[in-house]
Amino acid sequence: MKNVNLATENFSSGKRNYFLDFKRAVNDNRYLCITRSDEQHDGSYKRSTVVVFEQDFHFLIAAMSSLFHSAVYLSQDNLPVADVIRLKGLRVKKGIKSWDPGLRPREKFIAVGSSHMTDAELIAMLIGSGRKDMSAVDLAENILRAVGGRLDVLATQSHRSLSSFSGVGLAKSSAILAALELGRRMCAV
């Protein structure tokens, strides 16, 4: 028995063709098959395919949502840098609660799990809130940038060094250091 097409969509852009097929496998699992077909100089076609099974659709949707959210700011080619920064600033001033639910750290953690989150998003969950002009995620990114993105270096920081970041006090630095200590203890077992 052959895999059955349940629904299909396609579109083209120049010499590229895209096919999106929702299929049912012989074992009755359903999946999305995304194929890109590029016409070569000799008239032949080169195909690339990605398959995503139905149980992983929520990962794909969360990843696409996050990608598109980020792309809004990165693809502002025709805007001066100051305007892009201003647009991003508007998002920050509204806070994480104004973000699409799939992008909020806590909701993302529940929906897709910790393995699909950045270190900054996980640290943002520990610190809880940012500042008026900076989200908890942006604050966590600043902290990580200061330690070269290395969690082992972050774990060696003192309350004083973490509290040097505006928006981080003893409570937030304690939460970060406590979580890193638990991770260290778990690895030591």
Rank of each mutant, 00 (worst) to 15 (best):
H41C: 03
W99M: 07
R47Y: 03
M117I: 04
H41M: 12
H58G: 04
C33G: 03
Q40N: 15
Q76V: 00
N17R: 12
S13K: 09
S114C: 02
K46Y: 12
D83Q: 10
P101C: 02
Y45E: 05
V84T: 15
K23T: 06
G95D: 08
R36G: 04
R106Y: 08
S66H: 09
F53D: 07
R30I: 10
R47T: 15
N29T: 14
S70D: 10
L103D: 07
A124F: 01
A124G: 00
G102W: 14
R24D: 02
V52R: 03
R16L: 15
F19D: 07
A63V: 08
A111D: 10
K94R: 09
K94V: 00
Q55D: 15
A63W: 05
S66L: 08
Q76C: 04
I110S: 10
L20P: 00
Q40I: 04
E39N: 06
E39D: 02
R24P: 00
R16F: 11
Q76F: 02
S70Q: 10
I85E: 12
V50K: 12
A120Q: 01
P105G: 01
Y18D: 02
W99F: 14
Y31P: 01
I34Q: 03
V72T: 13
S115E: 11
G89H: 07
L32I: 04
L90V: 05
